[in-house]
Simulated scan of single mutants.
Amino acid sequence: MRSLHNTQFSILELAPVREDKSVQFSLQHALELAQHAEKLGFSRLWLAEHHNMDGIASSATAVLLGYLLANTSTLKVGSGGIMLPNHAPLVVAEQFGTLETLYPGRVELGLGRAPGTDQVTMRALRRGRQETEEQFPQDVLEILSYFGEAKQGQRITATPGQNTHVPVWLLGSSLFSAQLAAQLGLPYSFASHFAPRMLGQAIQLYRENFQPSPYLDKPYVSMGVPTVVADTDEEAEFLATSVYQRILALLTGRSLKLQPPVQTMEGRWSVSEKIAVQNFLAMAQIGSPETVKQGLEKLLMQYDVDEFIFTCDIFDTDKRLNNFSLLIDLKQSN
């Protein structure tokens, strides 16, 4: 079985907006986290694209990536992911080709096939274009062509972008992208931080059908893991009430701004809502370092992934940074 020491540790950042702070504070904290992750030795930090969500400030993903790249020096930074139905493939290739040209070897492009927003916002993003999730495979191939060497007779080239060979990942929460990633020989990341139900099935499908490619010679899988790590189980459970409130707000259509922790969630959710939040967070690791270590080892035993990509919605920014310090300690002391 793979050990924590041999498993890559990464971060997925959604630039959470606190209910008592500005969006600017969230963006500056995203940089603080990236610099912290670089010092600690995390493999990569990705930003997620979401729109029309008042508690998530990473909507202009490529722009924010540029800010993080300009103020770090070695950390790999990328998208987890760009929601491809919202964008023309050429524009994505030019944006990430530009970032890769400015910061060689540090840029990654994770692609998702859902819009990452509601129907009304989706129409506002697309401005009447009719792209659908079904066009995702063709769009991925188009982007790959823009990052490769230009072929003879190629009528459109991405400048910057062509010949930059930006690493492309496929992201998913169902079986579709697992199958496509296997077919194209691309690394695959499963969004188990919010949709864990099909994780095992997707990983098995990906591994069994993987075709070696110029991009990757063998399957490579990461899985999303929500975390709240603190010195004791009791403190972690207290801090996790911010996470519970945020997921409850998502499920009930309320503001997603991060709320301070509370002593108890009793009276804040119904029995069915509590179960829904628990299902959403089925892969979450909440507790002391020892508790979380046992939980991560159990996940490795079950899924044998190559990489964990961690999310964290702790309200206090210092405690949030400490969450990742405690996580990397688990890897390094294993």
Rank of each mutant, 00 (worst) to 15 (best):
Gln130Ile: 09
Pro16Arg: 02
Ala93Asp: 06
Asn86Ser: 06
Ala282Thr: 02
Met301Ser: 12
Ser26Pro: 01
Leu144Pro: 01
Gln263His: 14
Leu258Val: 05
Ile247Lys: 00
Ser174Thr: 11
Phe238Ile: 07
Glu108Asn: 12
Phe315Val: 05
Pro160Ile: 12
Glu266Lys: 15
Gly78Ala: 12
Thr311Ile: 13
Gly128Val: 10
Ala158Val: 14
Ala93Ile: 09
Phe238Gly: 00
Glu38Ala: 07
His51Met: 12
Val120Arg: 11
Asp118Ile: 12
Pro167Asn: 03
Leu186Cys: 06
Leu184Tyr: 05
Glu235Gly: 00
Thr291Asn: 02
Ile286His: 02
His87Lys: 07
Leu281Glu: 12
Tyr103Asn: 03
Gln278Asp: 15
Ser192Asn: 09
Arg207Ile: 04
Arg127Ile: 01
Leu141Pro: 00
Glu290Pro: 00
Gln162Trp: 09
Gly112Ile: 06
Ala37Asn: 04
His51Thr: 10
Pro212Glu: 03
Arg2Ala: 06
Leu125His: 11
Ile203Val: 13
His51Gln: 14
Ala62Pro: 03
Gln204Leu: 10
Phe42Glu: 02
Phe280Asn: 07
Gly105Lys: 13
Met283Cys: 05
Ala249His: 13
Asp231His: 13
Ala230Phe: 08
Gln278Glu: 15
Ser255Gly: 04
Leu99Asp: 02
Leu186Ile: 10
Glu266His: 09
Gln259Gly: 00
Gly128Ser: 09
Met53Pro: 00
Thr121Ala: 09
Ala240Gly: 00
Ala114His: 06
Ser189Thr: 11
Asp217Ile: 04
Arg113Tyr: 13
Glu290Arg: 14
Leu258Gly: 00
Ser3Ala: 09
Ala34Pro: 11
Gln35Glu: 15
Leu69Met: 09
Arg129Gly: 01
Glu133Asp: 06
Leu84Ala: 03
Gln152Met: 10
Gln263Gly: 13
Val166Arg: 04
Ser272Lys: 15
Phe210Glu: 07
Ile11Asn: 03
Ala182Thr: 09
Glu94Met: 13
Val166Ile: 12
Gly148Pro: 02
Glu49Val: 11
Thr121Leu: 01
Leu33Asp: 02
Lys331Met: 07
Leu299Gln: 13
Thr317Trp: 07
Gly200Glu: 11
Gly161Lys: 11
Ser242Lys: 06
Val77Lys: 06
Gln8Ile: 01
Tyr67Asp: 08
Asn323Cys: 14
Lys331Asp: 01
His165Ala: 11
Lys257Gly: 01
